[in-house]
Structure formats: structure tokens, C-alpha cells
Nucleic acid binder design. Structure first.
Length: 202
DNA sequence: TGCCCGATTAACT
DNA sequence: GTTAATCGGGCAA
């Protein structure tokens, strides 16, 4: 990871000014905090405007405008009219790429997350994009905010991590692209990755 | 304008 | 295994 993409361990804009395919795996093991509440990123998915599963595929709209803006900002959207999902915008302005944050290992502000989620099970606090946003109190008001400014803090991982990849979840287009990345063996994943040692299905 | 669908989740049978 | 909750975008009319 380039030195200049860090400041006091926090990721700066240049970290996100790269392809989603470089940024996505580099985010596994990074720390994501909102008002000091959050944890280690264990699962993400990459989306790019050249591919039909991305919100930006059909061009800019009011909802996805942030994806077409500068990198290092958050794109928050409403899913199924109910939940919210948070993405980190990547690449050069106008390229409309983003990394969906799908799951965290909770490390900070456990009490606040349990209160917001209404459950005690640590494993389920942030295991899914909608659950994660509820636990971290991410709302539509955060859409377009910069990741290097309050209330956000993102720190680079401090130790090597074993990363696995596979098909993205919950989409019907471009289902074969292996653009989902995860922390191998983590119990905080929204869903397990298929074991690489098992026999592959044709 | 109306209809269908979706980067989801929780509560069902 | 199935389904409801709930709303913006895309497309047909």
C-alpha cells in the first residue's frame, strides 16, 4: 500500500483513487468507524459502471450522482425501500466505481450497536450491508460525505489478512464476476464463501 | 401514469 | 423453504 495514501494510519483520498479491483481487497482488514463506532471490514463487493449490476451502469441519476463524483466519498442508497447500504467511491471522477461494504467485525462501540440493532448477538450486529448501516447509524444524510472527515474514520489494516473472493450476492446481472471479497474464515461474514478446497461445480 | 423489480432483512411455515 | 415491508429507477403505454 502506498505511503502517501496514509496519514496517521488513516486512509486518504489517494487510496481510493484506484481501480475498485485494487481498492476492494485492500479494504479487507481495514477499520471503519462512524462517530467512533464500527470495526474491521471483513466483506466487500466491487461495482463498476461498465458492468450491468452497478447502479451507475445506466448513467447518472439523482440517486447515484455521488458514484460519478470524486473518490473517497460515501455513496448511501436505500435498498428495497427499507434498508440502507454504504459504498466507498473509487477511481477517477466520472468513472463511477464503488465498493459496497457488506460486513464488519465489531470492535468499537458494541453497546451502541446492540442498542441500535435491538439484538445482543455480536456476530449479527454488522453481518450484512443493511445491518451494518443500522449498527453504525448511517443514514441518507451521509450520502456524499468525505471519508477523511468527521464522523468517518478509515484506517489501513495493520497485519496481513487471508482474502478470498467469489460471486456477488443478491444480484441477477453479471452474476459470474467474482467481485466479492472477504476475510477467509471470518465468522462475521454475511454469508460464507464456498470453500476453495471443495470440488468445483461445473 | 402505471407496473415491475431490486447490491435486504426478519419473521414466518 | 416463503413472504411482507416499502420506494426510486427504468420502461411500456
Amino acid at each position: 500500500m502506498a505511503e502517501k495514501s496514509l496519514k496517521d494510519g488513516q486512509l486518504t483520498r489517494s487510496f481510493f483513487d484506484r481501480s475498485v479491483h485494487e481498492v476492494a481487497p485492500d479494504l479487507i482488514g481495514a477499520t471503519f468507524l462512524v462517530c467512533g463506532v464500527g470495526g474491521l471490514i471483513v466483506e466487500v463487493e466491487a461495482y463498476h459502471y461498465t458492468e450491468p449490476a452497478a447502479h451507475s451502469y445506466a448513467g447518472p441519476t439523482v440517486r447515484n450522482a455521488v458514484m460519478f463524483g470524486p473518490p473517497g466519498h460515501v455513496y448511501v442508497y436505500r435498498s428495497y425501500g427499507i434498508h440502507r447500504c454504504v459504498n466507498f467511491v473509487c477511481e477517477a471522477e466520472g468513472s463511477a466505481g464503488a465498493v459496497l461494504i457488506r460486513a464488519l467485525m465489531p470492535t468499537a462501540g458494541l453497546a451502541a450497536m446492540r442498542r441500535r440493532r435491538g439484538i445482543n448477538d455480536e456476530r449479527l450486529l454488522c453481518a450484512g450491508p443493511g445491518r451494518l448501516c443500522e449498527a453504525l447509524a448511517i443514514t441518507d444524510a451521509h450520502n456524499g460525505a468525505a471519508l477523511d472527515k468527521v464522523p468517518f474514520r478509515v484506517f489501513a489494516r495493520t497485519a496481513p489478512v487471508k482474502i478470498v473472493s467469489g460471486p456477488r450476492i443478491g444480484i441477477s446481472k453479471a452474476v459470474d464476476l467474482p467481485w466479492r471479497y472477504g476475510w477467509a474464515g471470518s465468522r462475521f461474514l454475511s454469508r460464507p464463501f464456498r470453500a476453495a478446497t471443495k470440488s468445483q461445480r461445473a
